[in-house]
Design a protein around this nucleic acid. Structure first.
Lengths: 116, 116
DNA sequence: CTGCATGGTATCCGAAGGGAACCAACTTCC
DNA sequence: GGAAGTTGGTTCCCTTCGGATACCATGCAG
């Protein structure tokens, strides 16, 4: 057995070019954090997500969900019925990503009184 | 002892008007999350923070630090020497807020390979 | 024919993000 | 006496993003 010198640096969100940076940019976002949390109890339709994320506009919600889908955190399924039925569900990666975000949401709720 | 009906609803980040929402907006932000993490090992000067947060522009860094200061997460101390010396330090609230953000940063670094 | 529900687009606007240049004050070097 | 360096920003400009509002296609109910 032989020790091999590290060929690639370990991932570091503080480095501008690390892929971590773009993932942090995706997750460290108000609407993404809320959307992942909304989907954790099961798939939701577009309108249901919109109602849970009080105050989001449909345009921004579309963008957020599409971005989460692109990065493999959310699955989008279309049921071609009338009226149109579209479901958004967390992937396994999405469920895992939700854990630290859930901690953040809970910390905020638990400590809101401490803020000036 | 008497049970008092809840006068105010419990804090809920999913409600548009809850103060939690604006705090989440503050913390669920790429640069804020990185800045708090940079300061956790002790106070840093403006230039030091800027070097750690690779890629941030001075304008945005000023805005981020001011915002964190406004919300009581960071203290800004000016030492009127030449050259000017300004230090940014976490408050206790800032240190506590950093905990869930640290978990998020670590999760991203640990799971970056799973992203498509 | 009118209205309603769904899952979005289209449009417009102001705010925010990012790059580059610049600045004031004082020290040190030449 | 100048020129350059250091620090902590600010200013300008331009592009992008976020948010509000309006609108659309499809088909069903009444």
């Amino acid at each position: 057995m032989q020790l091999v010198p590290a060929l690639n640096a370990p991932p570091d969100v503080y480095l501008a070019n690390c892929p971590c940076r773009s993932v942090l940019d995706l997750l460290a976002d108000k609407w993404s954090a809320l959307a992942l949390g909304a989907l954790v109890d099961g798939p939701l339709r577009f309108g249901e997500v919109k109602r849970r994320l009080e105050g989001i506009s449909p345009k921004v919600l579309t963008a957020v969900l599409r971005r989460l889908e692109e990065h493999g955190l959310v699955d989008r399924t279309v049921y071609p019925a009338v009226p149109l039925h579209v479901e958004y569900a967390l992937t396994e990666l999405g469920r895992d990503a939700n854990a630290p975000l859930d901690a953040l949401r809970r910390w905020v709720e638990a400590n809101i009184e401490r803020f000036p």
